[in-house]
Every structure is written in C-alpha cells, then in structure tokens.
Simulated scan of single mutants.
Amino acid sequence: MNREAARTTVVVGATSEVGAEVSARLAGAGHTVRGVARRLGVALDDQAALDAAFAGADSAYVMIPFDVTAPDLHCFEDEVGARLASSIAKAGLNRVVLLSGLNAHLRMGTSLGAALMEERLAALGLEELVCLRASFFMENFVKGMGFVEQAASGVFATPFRGDLPMPLIAAKDIGERAAALLDAKGASGQRVVELHGGGYHTLEQATAILGRAIGKDVAYYAAPFADARAGMIANGLSASFADALGETAASFNKGERWALEVPSVANATPTSFEAWAENFARVGNAA
C-alpha cells in the first residue's frame, strides 16, 4: 500500500460488530484507527472527548446507536447526532460514511435517528458523504429479539408479519462495505448506497432456518403490537423504544416500500442467512 494514502479514521461504535469489522479492515490496510466507544474511554455524551478523537482525522465511520432504555429515544438520538456533527465540523473531515437504515427515507420509527443524521451531515457540506442504508441485521434475531430464549418454548414471536419478504444482512458485510468506502482512493460519487444483504426471507422462513441451525423446531407468530409492547417493557426496554419499533413494524406490515432500489448485484452482500445461521449455531450459540 502507498503510505501517502494512509488516513486517520475515526470509527464510532468501534466495539460493535460493524465497527469492529471497519476498524480491523482499515487497520489492516495501513490506516490509523481511532475508536469511539465508552469501553475505549470515549463516550458519546462527552463532547470534549469526541472533539479530541476527531481532531486531526481525515475521515470517519459514524452511527447513531440505539439506547433501548432511553426514556425518549429520539431525544437521545438527536443529542448524540448533534455532538458528533459538532466534532466533525470542528475537525474539518472530508470523508464520512454514515450507517443508516434502508427505510430512512420514511423518516420514522427506529430509523428516524439515522434519517435525521443524514440531514444533519448533509447540512455540513462535507466533500464526501456516503449514507450506507443497510437492511435488517441478521444479528437482531439473537441480540434484541431473543430468538434462542423464545425458541425454548417452540414459538418465536415479534410484531412483524411473517409472510412478507424482508432483506437480511450480516453486520460484518456492512463493515466490509463501509471500510472499502473509507479506504477508496477516490470519491464514490454516491450520496446513498443501499445494502439489501444476502437475500430476502419472510420471518416464517427465517425462523425455520435459524431453528434448524440450532436444532429446534420453532414456529413463527406475528404478535399483536400491544402484546409485544407489554413484553418489551416487562423485559426492561423503554416505552419510547418499544413505540419506535412499533412504528417500524406497522410500516413493514402495511407493505410500505423500505428500499428505493430493486435487488441487484450492486446492493447485495455475500453472507446468506443460511450461512449466518449455521455460523451462529456453531460459534455464537455455543459461546
């Protein structure tokens, strides 16, 4: 690699699955990586620490994390977004890749924070801004939706319809694409990059695939939102987060158009849900 092309890149959420993949790939390509995460001593509620992390950097991978216990989810997202944008503006970065949601154009639910961050960064007039709109994370099944715990009863329930195809993506594939955009010698020329993932599956199909992988016969149940909301709150999630998820589920259940592009080779990623499920059963479920 030409060392003159090496950059200093800030990676927000560096300890998350996507952020860790971005960090590893950029470091492997010879770039200097500055990780932002509370575990790394740089918290998203510390403006001074953020300013220091971004100072002198060339580029950044940015995301707005979920706080599933926040009393007001969107207020939390807005505050984090404002602090990150302030640090980016002060540092004068010329390249930013933002992790956004595939349905961000709808500006609601669990993608609202990312949609507002798209607008906030666009207003900065950055030389290169790419909004990486990713589909539904495969990891959500086991890190938020509690598939393994629910599978013990033989039924997996969420407020999403089970008969509509949903695009599913592996976190590492998002990290790979984000790192490639940050590592590129020239600008991508795209403001929005959609990532539909490794294929479309209904939640009934995904439940059967993941159930087989972990050796359990599991049926899917589309729960009424009132029941799902009560369960989420009983499990420690805030009413604000539950309601945001409810908006997202309602949009999906009505068949609203989440993606603006049709599925193609360009917006597909390599990891299939079947392969991800088998890997989880072999590694993640045993951990």
Rank of each mutant, 00 (worst) to 15 (best):
N2T: 15
N2Y: 05
N2G: 04
N2V: 05
T9K: 00
V10E: 03
V18L: 00
G19S: 02
G19P: 11
A24I: 06
R25Q: 09
L26W: 13
A27R: 11
A29S: 15
V33T: 05
V36S: 01
A43E: 14
A48Q: 12
A57C: 07
D58N: 06
S59A: 09
I64F: 11
A70M: 00
S100Y: 02
L112G: 10
L116W: 08
R120Y: 06
R120A: 07
G125P: 11
L126Q: 14
L129H: 05
L132T: 09
F141W: 10
M145R: 08
E149Y: 00
A152T: 08
A157W: 05
P159H: 01
L168I: 08
I169L: 05
K172A: 14
I174H: 01
A184P: 04
K185I: 14
K185V: 12
G186E: 15
G186K: 10
S188L: 04
S188Q: 07
R191T: 15
H196C: 09
G197M: 01
G198Y: 04
G199T: 14
H201P: 13
A208H: 06
R212G: 07
I214L: 14
G215C: 09
D217K: 13
D217P: 02
A223F: 03
P224Q: 01
A228Q: 08
L237I: 10
G246W: 00
T248K: 01
T248L: 00
S251H: 01
E256C: 09
L260Y: 01
L260D: 11
S264M: 02
T269Y: 00
P270H: 05
P270C: 05
A275S: 14
A277S: 10
E278S: 07
A287Y: 06
